[in-house]
């Protein structure tokens, strides 16, 4: 019996060792590729993420560098950049005072507009910022009060923690606690768009990139939601897409990547994705 046990253990050990060595092999491969290329780790906003991915893809075609992007939300990305887990953090909202105080440097790589959207059949096409606030906090509960049909307003919002939601609330001027309680919570821009497109009562907010004919956009005090109006600072529902880094964590490769994004070539991609260029 001891013999059998020994053989069994021996085989198990053999199996484990070979499995481990297989792992090691693959590790070695990536390690060796690391020796040849530089690696930039970026994490943060899911709104900035798609843009960063696209630019990184283009950049990696011509440069010997590996860029890893994790979309984990603005706040988590900023935390990572502060602690050095990531070289660069992506944020779709302004840095808070305490975040700046910890030594983070921000680089605005693009702007994004947020637009209030309704069902195409909704007659309300223009609102003041104050009315938007009243809608989202529940002070106004019927479209009739805003010049529309006699329909109850159904508010659709993003989930707590979303950078888009934080940016929207900050600009409009209400807090998460003030958001009307029976608001439908949808995850993601696409989800909000579908929910609003399906419901005559609904109102929500999405990024400019998601605008299409299935929903109707709302002007703010007569100013249309367009990239030009954001650039000329007429349309106030806009936010920066920014990279945050600490000087001592930033490598030359990281520095070069940021410079690439700000170059005309990088900014062309920004426009291609539907965001608004910085320059």
């Amino acid at each position: 019996m001891t013999f059998i046990r020994k053989t069994a253990i021996g085989l198990l050990v053999l199996f484990t060792v070979s499995a481990l060595s297989a792992c090691n092999n693959s590790n070695n491969k990536t390690d060796s590729s690391n020796d040849r290329t530089n690696r930039i780790s970026i994490s943060g906003s899911t709104s900035v993420g798609p843009l960063a991915e696209k630019i990184a893809d283009k950049y990696m075609d011509t440069n010997d560098v590996k860029i890893e992007i994790n979309q984990i939300g603005s706040s988590a990305g900023i935390t990572n950049a502060t602690s050095g887990v990531s070289e660069i953090g992506m944020s779709s909202r302004d840095l808070k005072e305490e975040e700046k105080a910890s030594g983070l440097v921000e680089t605005i790589i693009a702007y994004d507009g947020i637009v209030v959207v309704t069902h195409p059949a909704n007659k309300v096409k223009n609102l003041t910022m104050d009315q938007v606030k009243q809608i989202f906090t529940g002070e106004v509960s019927n479209w009739k009060e805003l010049g529309g049909e006699n329909l109850e307003i159904v508010v659709v919002s993003r989930e707590d923690g979303s950078g888009s939601r934080e940016a929207f609330q900050e600009i409009v001027g209400y807090s998460s606690g003030e958001l009307i309680r029976n608001a439908i919570i949808a995850s993601g821009n696409g989800n909000i768009k579908t929910t609003v497109a399906m419901n005559k009562h609904a109102v929500g907010f999405i990024s400019f990139e998601y605008i299409d004919s299935s929903i109707s956009t709302i002007d703010i005090s007569g100013v249309k939601a367009t990239a030009e109006n954001v650039l000329q600072q007429k349309y106030s529902l806009s936010r920066p897409f920014l990279f945050a880094h600490k000087e001592d964590h930033l490598t030359t490769a990281g520095q070069q990547f940021i410079e690439y994004i700000l170059s005309p070539e990088g900014q062309d991609i920004v426009e291609e994705v539907g965001a608004i260029r910085v320059k």
């Binding site: 899911t46 984990i72 706040s75 988590a76 935390t79 707590d160 923690g161 979303s162 919570i185 995850s187």
Partner: peptide, 10 residues
């Protein structure tokens, strides 16, 4: 719904 964005005590 919220795990994707949550960190820390959230």
């Amino acid at each position: 719904l919220e795990m994707g964005y949550a960190f820390g005590s959230h």
